[in-house]
Amino acid sequence: MTRRATPGKAARYGMIIDLDRCNGCGACMIACAVENNVPPPDAKATPRTGLNWVRVFRVETATRPAFVPVMCMQCGDETPCVSVCPQNAVDVDPSTGVVGQIPERCLGCRYCMAACPYQARVFNWRDPQWPAGMEQALNPNVSARQRGTVEKCNFCHGRWHAAVEAAANEGKTGSVSYTPACVEACPAQAIEFGDLNDAAFAAKARAAGAFRLLEPLGTGPKVYYRTGRAEVRGAVSGLIEEAKNGQRS
């Protein structure tokens, strides 16, 4: 059976994050939480129990530190989290290449979190709660999640839905374009979002200095990083030879 994307041809959305531009301000984390109806952390929350869909790591290198935003890599090959879910709550959307996590189907066994090498998945350890009145400001394009379920970055799929609907309202056909919240919010314009089926974007992702996290695992992540600094590439990429190069330089 052939699967056709709902509007136009299938896309393979991806990101290119420029580590030389990222200054670790965390605007992407805040924009993401606001966009995706992530409840504010409760008093006892720790960085390890928080609901961050994107986390910015500070990585010490031989020279000055680098900042690495890590979100769901939307793995394309042998996606580790999809095959492990016992009840098909995770799948890969063929029309966008986005790994979909459906909290309403989720049992909360957290096996997918154990499977994810990027630790990009988070668990709702308690009931989500918003300060009084703030529910009114929730994003209607994103459904809030329940306690006991897993959630993660989906490249702002609510914005994709909105873009598709807006195109249909105008009677347009063909592919849609949209921008995830983190990309929009980044003051340094360190994150670029695009379709890897688009030759120009794909070429940029594979240009010199670009790499992906833990590439030897064979997960085929669709988030690319680039840096001109060898020591940063050595500390971040997880490639042994890169690490050696990084130490030498």
């Binding site: 059976m1 052939t2 699967r3 056709r4 994307a5 709902t6 299938a10 709550a89 799948d91 890969v92 959307d93 063929p94 029309s95 966008t96 986005v98 979909g100 996590q101 459906i102 309403e104 189907r105 394009n141 994103v142 459904s143 989906n154 799929h157 609510g158 839905h161």
Partner: peptide
């Protein structure tokens, strides 16, 4: 969606 050969992964209809 299946009958019309349209995409029917979770995220197509779930937000």
């Amino acid at each position: 969606h299946r009958q019309r050969g349209l995409s029917h992964s979770c995220l197509d209809c779930h937000k």
